[in-house]
């Protein structure tokens, strides 16, 4: 059996008296696609940030590629794990190419310039993310969908085999949502990148992931296949709301529709 890409054991994190994560445990196989769902404030983004050490001080154990997170230097961790934040910064004074080149930071040392190999890796990352045509654009002039592609390219330029994505399709129109989901599916399927994506889109989670982790109040309330998530009782427990289910007209997968409001 191969080493899991990510293994989390009893992860808890609190800010003052507020418990953000409460004994979260799960395992993600290398090369798989995990969607993380749950209501607002469930601790999804915090969980991603703990995995990437953007947030420190959580109790419990995190293993990345079988090695404890505590044993990684920040640079070594960046070579394993890439992070794509929600939206990203707006006031970035760099061209797209320069921005993606910053993803090569873990491979550079002080006083050195990027090498031909770094330039090659950046070109590959831009190509993989479908963002080659944006290379000369100013980052600040990009649309939401373009920014998301560039953020993914920058994470890929790190050579990371694990991608953490925080709501990668939020604020995007349906076409751009579809483009980003297709890109992630391609990276996962063709390049074997392990993906952990936080999302509020249950249907996207059902259609794109191998497994789904559902959090509520900082605790895991569901961890299983997307088909098993599409269950009235599970979703009621998760969101305290009733959902209706329909079948996808092409692949027959169960999808949810909310209750009508009028």
């Amino acid at each position: 059996m191969s080493t899991p890409a990510v293994e989390v054991q009893g992860l808890s994190y609190a800010i003052g008296a507020a418990r953000i994560l409460d004994g979260v445990s799960f395992l993600v196989e290398a090369g798989s696609y995990l969607s993380i769902v749950g209501p607002n404030g469930a601790g999804k983004s915090t969980l991603l940030k703990c995995l990437n050490r953007i947030i420190t001080g959580a109790a419990g154990r995190i293993l990345i590629q079988g090695r404890s997170l505590a044993d990684y230097s920040q640079t070594d961790l960046a070579i394993q794990v890439g992070y794509v934040p929600q939206g990203g910064a707006d006031d970035v004074p760099f061209s797209v190419y320069e921005f993606v080149m910053m993803g090569r930071y873990p491979h550079l040392s002080a006083f050195t310039s990027p090498t031909a190999d770094d330039e090659c890796r950046v070109a590959e990352a831009l190509d993989l993310a479908g963002a080659s045509s944006l290379a000369n654009r100013d980052y600040g002039t990009l649309s939401g969908g373009e920014k998301q592609r560039v953020l993914i390219a920058a994470a890929l330029a790190q050579d990371a085999r694990i991608l953490l994505l925080d709501e990668p399709t939020t604020f995007l129109d349906p076409r751009h949502q579809h483009d980003i989901l297709r890109l992630l599916a391609r990276l996962n399927r063709d390049s074997g990148v392990t993906i952990l994506a936080v999302t509020h889109d249950l249907n996207a989670a059902a259609l794109s992931s191998d497994r789904v982790l559902a959090l509520r109040g900082g605790a895991v309330v569901f961890h299983g296949s997307p088909c098993a998530l599409m269950d009235a009782a599970v979703l009621r427990r998760l969101y305290e709301q009733e959902f209706h289910f329909v079948s996808h007209p092409v692949n027959g997968c169960s999808l949810v529709v909310p209750e009508a409001v009028r």
Binding site: I79, Y83, A89, P93, M102, G103
Partner: peptide, 11 residues
């Protein structure tokens, strides 16, 4: 310049 969270995630 692009933010502390992204800086951490880049290593």
């Amino acid at each position: 310049t692009i933010g502390e969270d992204l800086a951490v995630s880049r290593g």
